[in-house]
């Protein structure tokens, strides 16, 4: 059984914020206040989630669960970062250097890996999915857009060809709009279900 008071408060708040978004000069004050609340709640939620994560890993270490060494690494690095951040302050150059020296190389390596995997995935798509309408159209469009990307055809300056190129270049945008309309419709229905309390959290 849904509790009526939180539901009513939720629905009213949602409707007020929605109305404030449409009537900007009149509702901007409300939006500002709500935005501040959202920032505070999101910050607290992140703290709660981090605390829960650390507790979970401490429990793994205490129980000696499989892979608990990784949990140990997580807890030690979390505590070291927290201690350094509290001692020096989060804007201190030493702290930023310390964190950046760890994060930046890892992120760069991961992005490099993404580029490699994308390349191998483009090759693998024919082997894994076979020759279907999807894979053939993927291959053909990839080649066409690679050629268009070179700019050679555009430099020929043939008006009829330029028209064709403009039409072809607009095709991905048309497809994307179709997908975006679909996502928008799905999102609208989900928003209504959330707004009117139909999307429950399990039992309430």
């Amino acid at each position: 059984m849904k509790r009526p008071l939180p539901l009513i408060v939720g629905i009213l708040s949602g409707l007020i914020v929605l109305a404030a978004m449409f009537f900007v000069p009149q509702g901007s004050g409300i939006l500002g206040v709500v935005l501040s609340w959202v920032i505070i709640v999101a910050g607290v939620a992140l703290l709660v989630a981090i605390a829960s994560l650390v507790l979970t890993h401490l429990r793994f270490i205490a129980k000696g669960k499989k892979g608990f060494l990784l949990s140990l690494v997580l807890v030690i690095s979390f505590l070291a970062t927290l201690a350094l951040g509290l001692l020096l302050g989060v804007d201190h150059s030493t702290f930023l250097g310390f964190v950046g020296a760890i994060i930046r190389p890892i992120e760069t390596a991961l992005l490099g890996l993404v580029a490699l995997i994308m390349m191998s995935a483009a090759m693998k798509i024919f082997r894994e999915r076979g020759w279907s309408a999807l894979t053939v159209s993927f291959g053909v469009s990839a080649i066409i857009f690679l050629i268009l990307g070179l700019g050679f055809l555009q430099n020929l300056n043939i008006p009829a060809l330029n028209e064709v190129i403009r039409f072809v270049e607009a095709l991905p945008m048309i497809g994307a709009r179709g997908l975006l309309i679909g996502i928008g419709i799905g999102l609208l229905m989900m928003a209504f279900r959330v707004l009117f309390g139909m999307e429950g959290s399990g039992n309430d």
Binding site: G43, I50, S52, G202, N203
Partner: peptide
């Protein structure tokens, strides 16, 4: 989850499902 709010909401969903 890779977001604090999402992690909390997800936990609420899990807890609600078990309580339900």
């Amino acid at each position: 989850s890779g977001d604090g709010v999402l992690a909390c909401l997800s936990r609420m969903v899990v807890r609600g499902a078990y309580r339900g």
